[in-house]
Nucleic acid binder design. Sequence first.
DNA 1: TGTCGATTCCCGCTCAATGGTAATCCTCCT
DNA 2: AGGAGGATTACCATTGAGCGGGAATCGACA
Lengths: 261, 261
Amino acid sequence: MANSASGESIIGRFVKIVNAFDDTHPAMSVAELGRRTGLPVTTTYRLVNDLLLERLLEREPGGDIHIGTRMWELASRSSKMLGLREAALPFMEDVQAVVQHSTTLGILDSDEVLYIERLGSDKTIVDITKIAGRLPVHATSSGLVLLAHSPSAYQDAFLARPLTKFTETTLTEPAALRRHLAEIRQRGFAAMPGVIVPESSGIAVPVFGPDNTVRAALSVVVPRNEENTPARVPVLMAAARGISRALGWRGELKGTLRQSH
Amino acid sequence: MANSASGESIIGRFVKIVNAFDDTHPAMSVAELGRRTGLPVTTTYRLVNDLLLERLLEREPGGDIHIGTRMWELASRSSKMLGLREAALPFMEDVQAVVQHSTTLGILDSDEVLYIERLGSDKTIVDITKIAGRLPVHATSSGLVLLAHSPSAYQDAFLARPLTKFTETTLTEPAALRRHLAEIRQRGFAAMPGVIVPESSGIAVPVFGPDNTVRAALSVVVPRNEENTPARVPVLMAAARGISRALGWRGELKGTLRQSH
DNA sequence: TGTCGATTCCCGCTCAATGGTAATCCTCCT
DNA sequence: AGGAGGATTACCATTGAGCGGGAATCGACA
């Protein structure tokens, strides 16, 4: 499926190129793009030109390249993300108004947490979540909530892999994690003090869809010393129920374990 | 630049495919995708498979295809859109809280208005703006504001083209439009009663960047009978100044015409 | 059982994509 | 002015990925 010496398809190279851009590298010259992607010079220029024609990339006055408006438009036009985001936004605003630090909405994607919306404030101290950013499942409150309500086959596969220990409090033992997941299901929320960076804590609750499976995790990130979990959980839970209902969820089935399959 | 009989590049076909999805067609079978794009059957299947591998498209249980999470992620990761959106959102919420109908943020892209954010409510009646949706420049309040503050060379080129008359109130005469644009610059806002659909009116104001050029248009859409323009304009203007300042704008230069170039 | 559509498999053709090399352009420094 | 270093464009021989027609298979529905 590839004309290239390296055996990649054009689509693969396209992803490589777009992937070379991130928040720290929002724009760069074509030459640097070639270096970052490892593609041959000529090939890079040819491909970039194709992409410029379709406006998936754009050239700024200086000559540097950045991701084009068209790319965002095409991706956003018909995305399940938009529906979820739109349903969640008003509730997230309410949470943010009360909690004042940072409110995020994340989904499970490719064994990682992908954050699709984030409300922050100037007070926000250490919060590494970014919109369209990814973080590991086992080291975030959102991730653990999502994992806790995933099909058990998925959990098994996930726990079979080796997990990175980011800080002292990061759980990496399958058995300990399993116990913790059960606790999360039972309590209805996850509270993780400094599992990825020691300075901040996350509290997360699940958001459900019409079929009673988990769709997303709603969470707040607060400084380590002022967690005040008992006070924050009810706010989060109420908001999550609101979002779930906006998605078509009709209340949890009485006495049903939420873990599906 | 193309291996195909029709002379399209793969990138071009990729755009065709993604473009086949919209809010009314969020998912479809590969065969239907082939029909909608006009691509040969086999080619469609091969290309779709490539895209599925990169998760730019995703297959749902039924077999239908929809746009993948990866697509949104790549597009959103480093986009000027995000910065603008993030700066604007809090102010838009304030406007929305007061106006209660529908608040939008639009930019000028490819001679059309592209809406990058929209806050609505249940009360929202007729409002055809959608996030990532496009509308013609000359038939929207946002578009006219953006056009009014564009370089005059751009305005000339735009006004040289024939313009569609959507309703009775749509201005299509270059001379009349020019007068109107001058008025918009002078007043600082555009108020368009029913230029695209007769039932609703738009009021829009410009948002400026650090270099004092217009970046976006902030607007509200209200029912035709309860426009109350004089009451709404100050709210919009204050919010737009807030957004502009968040973008790095430092106040307008005294006595300067805002029309650049 | 038969029909219709979606999907996959097969396969020979061919030209677009490839990527090395070299020329040109551009910017900054001396 | 000169020239060093990088970015960009131009050139071009090679080749296999993409192409797309056609047929087989799967699957739903009547």
